[in-house]
Amino acid sequence: MKKLSVLFAAVMMVVSVGMAKAQKIATLDVIGVLNAMPEKKKADTDLKAFLDTKQAEIKKKADAGQAKVKQYTEEAPKKTADENKAREAELAKMQEEIQQMNDKAQKDFVAKQDAAYEPIEKKLNDAVSKVAKASGYDYIMDANSAAFVFKGGPDATAAVKKELGVQ
Results as ranks from 00 to 15, higher is better:
D82A: 13
G165S: 11
V128M: 12
T157M: 12
D29C: 08
A9F: 13
D108E: 09
V6M: 07
Q167I: 12
V128Y: 09
F50K: 10
A20C: 12
F50A: 04
Y139E: 09
I25Y: 01
K60D: 10
V160K: 08
L34D: 01
K48G: 08
P154M: 07
Q100W: 00
P154D: 13
K54S: 14
S129D: 11
K85P: 00
G152F: 14
D155Y: 04
I120E: 07
V69F: 06
G32H: 12
K70I: 04
E90W: 00
K48L: 11
M13N: 00
Q100T: 02
D155K: 02
G153L: 04
I25L: 05
P77I: 06
A111I: 03
A143V: 12
A127W: 09
F50W: 03
A10R: 01
Q55I: 14
M1F: 07
P77V: 07
K54N: 09
M101R: 05
A143R: 15
K123R: 15
K85G: 00
S145H: 04
I25T: 08
G153P: 04
M19L: 15
V131A: 10
G152Y: 14
E121L: 13
V33L: 07
S145P: 05
S16Q: 07
M1C: 12
K85Y: 07
A26T: 08
D142C: 10
A22G: 12
K54F: 00
Y139T: 11
I140C: 11
R87V: 00
I58Q: 13
M101N: 00
A49Q: 08
A159G: 10
G32F: 11
I31C: 00
K68I: 01
V128E: 01
A67C: 00
V14K: 03
I120Y: 07
Q55R: 15
L7P: 04
D126W: 09
Q66L: 02
I120Q: 09
L7E: 06
K59T: 15
K151Q: 15
K54R: 14
E88V: 01
Q95L: 04
Q66P: 00
A156C: 12
K130P: 05
Q55F: 13
E75G: 02
A158P: 06
A22S: 13
L91M: 09
V160F: 13
E118D: 15
V14N: 02
A132Q: 08
L34Q: 05
I58A: 12
I25M: 03
F50I: 04
V69I: 10
V160S: 06
S129N: 13
I140L: 13
M1K: 13
P119F: 15
Q66T: 04
A92I: 02
A132P: 03
A89E: 05
A111C: 03
I58H: 11
T80M: 01
K130D: 14
P38N: 06
K3T: 08
K112E: 07
M101I: 05
